[in-house]
Design a protein around this nucleic acid. Structure first.
Length: 269
DNA sequence: AGTATAACCTGTCTGC
DNA sequence: TGCAGACAGGTTATAC
């Protein structure tokens, strides 16, 4: 579910509420979400420690603890992190952090979301991530290097080892915005189009953050509110609708097992 | 190195 | 009403 703008929105909601709070209790209802640890170990290290920061790393939510350990949460398709005051348990609750002022509830209908316990030196799945389009190291030179590939550009944009944050919604949107075919081989992009894509990615992601993300179905921020960017989508889920730029109907095709939405008129190969 | 598929899960929607 | 099949904001293992 959540891509960069959604994760960023969640983190911005959680950080001010969780920073400085001590974890009083941790209830784990579904141990399957723990990938590299178990309930006893996680409880042992988490309970009693204080949260120093909550931040986004790629699509991961990283909770830094006072004891040098980090909790890395990935929401995958339907995960949610919700601030709650009530003790009532819901159907899809996987685990619950009891803080001083609040509780943070980790819900996930499809049970694909994960939690890793990381040390400052062992960064686990975070060690392999690509460049962050909103980070200070996002430079044309690095991006141009990524484009030296025979891969189709949309597949490349979805590869978190190359560039983080884009998922199926924003990869489709960014390519339409830059008028580039999702099937175009990266290395065959002209410099003009490559540079346009480079600029479009952070621009569109910032607009989506402004709108607090996209809610198609299940996405909610930490307060349970949906986003607003779904009203501003140009191609994702818009098959049959007129392209906002040229009015020809948006098309939908399978690409690498996933739906690609595009305008056959202004995104020609 | 790339790509294609299945796998991990549960729910919703479509068509017969 | 039932049931099969496709599909869903993601990643990863495995097989060519």
């Amino acid at each position: 579910m959540p891509e960069l703008p959604e994760v960023e929105t969640i983190v911005r909601g959680l950080h001010p509420k969780m920073r400085g709070e001590t974890i009083q209790g941790l209830k784990i209802r579904d141990p399957q979400l723990l990938r590299n640890t178990d309930s006893d170990e996680l409880r042992k290290y988490a309970i009693g420690s204080t949260i120093s920061t909550v931040r986004r790393v790629g699509k991961y939510i990283l909770v830094k603890l006072s004891n040098q350990l980090n909790i890395a949460i990935h929401l995958r398709m339907t995960g949610k992190l919700l601030l709650k005051s009530l003790k009532k348990t819901t159907k899809y609750e996987r685990c619950r952090f009891q803080l001083e002022e609040n509780q943070v509830v980790f819900e996930d209908m499809r049970r694909l979301a994960t939690l890793d316990l990381l040390t400052d030196t062992d960064k686990g799945p975070l060690s392999n991530l690509g460049i962050d389009p909103l980070g200070s190291k996002y430079r044309w030179k690095k991006f141009a290097k990524l484009l030296e590939s025979r891969q189709e550009i949309k597949r490349l944009l979805l590869d978190q080892h190359k560039i983080v944050g884009l998922g199926n919604i924003y990869a489709n949107e960014v390519l339409h915005s830059a008028s580039i075919s999702p099937w175009k081989q990266a290395e065959k992009l002209s410099v003009t189009k490559g540079r346009r894509l480079f600029r479009t990615i952070p621009h569109l992601l910032r607009e989506a953050i402004q709108a607090e993300g996209t809610t198609i179905d299940t996405y909610r921020d930490s307060t349970g509110s949906p986003g607003n960017f779904q009203h501003l989508l140009h191609v994702y889920g818009q098959q049959g609708q007129p392209c906002p730029r040229c009015q020809s109907p948006i098309d939908r095709e399978k690409q690498g097992g996933r739906s690609t939405f595009y305008c056959p008129q202004c995104q020609q190969k």
